[in-house]
């Protein structure tokens, strides 16, 4: 229960500033229908979506500098999303690859693309179809963290998985 609450909060944090309203949808499992925590009232008006399992609330894969290989620790997360996409063929996903600010902006577009492409390939292996997932790159153009140190850079070397309605 504590864990679900945490993931629900994460969702609020993740989508708190999204401009497009999240499309209401019935969660696949009743367990995520947690009552709104008193500290975050918007949750009641914002159905958790799609998140039928705890794993699906994890949406990011992080990388080492200049690298695009997916570390083993992210396999369960990708497996869960791949399975969800396989079971929900109508669902679409955008994968955004990101890089830290170092190096050529255009090369970073290509590197971010490769990161997103790697996530896509893994999801397809796990059951998603090619047409469900579009890998794109944001290069170094949309940093989550804007300081100029490794603490920030490691957060910016990232692929994010966004479901239709979330971007």
């Amino acid at each position: 229960m504590k864990k679900t609450l945490f993931s629900a909060l994460t969702l609020v944090l993740l989508y708190g500033c999204a401009s497009t309203p999240v499309e209401p949808e019935k969660p696949a499992e009743p367990s995520v229908q947690t009552p709104a925590p008193p500290v975050a009232p918007p949750l009641a008006a914002r159905p958790v979506q799609p998140a039928p399992q705890v794993d699906l609330t994890k949406r990011s894969v992080f990388y080492d500098y200049d690298k695009y290989d997916i570390k083993d620790e992210y396999r369960p997360v990708l497996q869960a999303h791949g399975k969800y996409l396989a079971e929900n063929r109508g669902k679409k996903m955008l994968i955004q690859g990101n890089c830290d600010e170092r190096g050529s902006r255009e090369y970073n577009i290509a590197l971010g693309q490769r990161r997103a492409e790697g996530v896509k390939r893994m999801l397809v292996l796990m059951g998603a179809t090619e047409t469900q997932v579009e890998p794109v790159s944001l290069g170094e153009e949309k940093p989550r963290c804007t300081d100029h140190n490794e603490g920030c850079w490691s957060q910016n070397r990232r692929s994010d998985m966004l479901y239709g309605g979330e971007y």
Partner: peptide, 9 residues
Amino acid sequence: YVSFQNKKP
């Protein structure tokens, strides 16, 4: 030029 106005390049 390249624009991200549609959330991708």
